[in-house]
């Protein structure tokens, strides 16, 4: 018996992809990433409290190219989530909800997060 593909009811894919929904999804994703990333901070602090040997191990891992990549992404994730949170504070005062305004805020969120991340890493890591 052959099985024909059955018609599906329209779901998420019928909607036009908008910047506001993207930033909403990214806000949640960065929140989850920050959640996991906080373990990295706890491990670093615990290693420092423990002794020089564990700290050397953590510094080697975090200082490797992959560790640096993760920390760079973590920096962006934290900054993006913070800016997204500030956007929610703005919305709490019923400001910036009109069409156009909310798109501007969403784009500002994305652009500022990238600019600030690059600024932080340029000033404090690459030039230091």
């Amino acid at each position: 018996m052959t099985v024909r593909s059955r018609p599906l009811s329209p779901h998420l894919q019928i909607y036009r992809w908008t910047i506001t929904m993207t930033m909403s999804i990214v806000h949640r994703a960065t929140g989850i990433a920050n959640y996991a990333g906080m373990a990295l901070l706890a491990i670093w602090l615990a290693a420092a409290a423990w002794g020089q040997e564990p700290l050397n191990l953590v510094n080697d891992i975090y200082g490797s190219w992959f560790g640096q990549l993760v920390l760079f992404a973590f920096t962006w994730s934290l900054i993006h989530h913070m800016l997204g949170g500030i956007r929610h504070f703005i919305w709490d005062f019923i400001i910036g909800m009109e069409p156009g305004q909310r798109e501007t805020l969403a784009w500002a969120n994305l652009v500022l997060s990238i600019v600030l991340t690059l600024l932080v890493w340029t000033v404090f890591v690459w030039m230091a």
Binding site: G51, V120, F124
Partner: peptide, 30 residues
Amino acid sequence: RLTGAINIAFLIFLLFVVVRLAGQDRPDMV
């Protein structure tokens, strides 16, 4: 909202600490 607002301070503070101490040895951390 409340913890989120406080976390803005946390992020700036964390940035200062990490920038100051990244890759440093234990005496510096202490």
